[in-house]
Amino acid sequence: MVELVSREPVVRAEEARELAGDLVVLPNRGVDLVPNIGVIGGTRAVLVVDTGMGPGNGDAVFEFVADYARGREIYLTTTHFHPEHAFGAQSFSGAATFLVNRAQADDLAAKGAGYLDMFRGLGEPVARQLEGVELVTPDLVYDDSHELDLGGRVVRLRATGRAHSRGDQVITVPDAGVLFTGDLVETGQFAIFPWFPPHDTDVSGIRWIEVLRKLADEHPRIVVPGHGDTGGHGLLADVRDYLALLRDETWVRRDSAMGREEVVEEVTALMLERHPEWAGREWIEPGVGCLCAEHAQR
């Protein structure tokens, strides 16, 4: 389980920065449980990518977006259903059209209440942000992909299939070469594996690697990760290569019939040696656990 969070997970909309024409990001500033939030504009409408955690953050993001939109129609989407990405959606109710892929909508309906309870246990700062959360049913649901015309700019939403979660989606802005990945990519930290057996085991390290391989082949100009600094297309390869190494080092030890605890100990030591500067070391063990389970299913 994730270690307790002591710093307030608050979105700072005033720190928005422009990535391209009529496209800004509210950066997470290295704060745990604050995502990078996107606002993508066209002549007719704007699309918001992720909300922050809880109604306080959702209100702050909506206030920024309402001013930014200047009368344009507002759409909202979320990269996946996890609380820091999607549990501020109520602030947009009645003022925006909320759309996601079907697997994500199913995740939210089936797991949203459980994740709300789990996250409340991460510490008082998180519990405070989650006060008054109401889970919102999306207005529009698509199956595999959806093209959203914002007026002079078409944004593409795509379900990736099971990876970090069952309902991951990526958002591409083709004319700007920008890709929003959600938690398929982080920078400066170990990949987040929500591997919580028996409650949630939908994360797949094997499929995650394949998803990143395909995205890397598209060579986006700018990649906006779920958490951490925005960068170039090399971020996709960096995370893919880390996950492949984690898989290979886990599986070679399982092939030798090494016990799970010993595998965790050895692989964790290796990953910390390779990336001593990365945050989120608590995510190595659940990553190994997930890949041990997938090794057994081969």
Rank of each mutant, 00 (worst) to 15 (best):
L33P: 07
A176E: 14
L150F: 14
L179A: 00
A60K: 12
G121S: 00
Q297S: 11
N28D: 15
E3V: 06
V5E: 09
G167R: 05
D32C: 03
V5W: 00
F98C: 02
E277K: 11
R44H: 09
A66W: 14
V133Y: 03
A96H: 06
K111G: 01
H164Y: 15
P83N: 02
L140H: 06
R102P: 03
V155G: 07
T230L: 13
V39R: 07
G52N: 02
L272A: 01
L47K: 12
H164I: 01
V39T: 12
E218M: 12
H227I: 03
R247F: 08
G152F: 13
G280V: 04
R44E: 14
H82R: 07
G41M: 09
G205I: 07
H199T: 11
R102M: 04
T78P: 05
W278Y: 14
L157S: 02
S93T: 15
G30W: 00
V65Q: 04
Q104G: 03
E282L: 03
G226D: 01
R7V: 15
P138A: 01
E266Q: 15
T250C: 00
L4G: 00
E84P: 13
A69R: 08
A13N: 07
A69I: 11
F196P: 01
E84N: 13
P83L: 04
R158V: 13
L243K: 08
A109T: 09
K111N: 13
E124P: 06
D117E: 15
G259V: 12
V224N: 01
W283C: 09
L99I: 14
P125C: 02
G112S: 00
V2R: 15
L236F: 13
W283G: 06
Y242C: 09
A103W: 11
V264E: 13
R213G: 10
A216L: 09
G226S: 04
L130N: 11
R166A: 13
G188S: 09
G132F: 13
G38I: 04
F81E: 02
P197Y: 00
H80P: 00
G232T: 12
L245D: 13
H80N: 10
L291A: 01
A109F: 01
V223G: 00
D175C: 05
F119L: 06
L76T: 10
A159K: 10
G152W: 14
V264I: 15
I206W: 14
I37C: 01
L272Y: 07
R207H: 14
T187M: 10
A257H: 10
A89P: 12
D139G: 06
Y75G: 11
A127C: 09
G123H: 04
G167H: 10
G112E: 05
A296Q: 08
R153H: 12
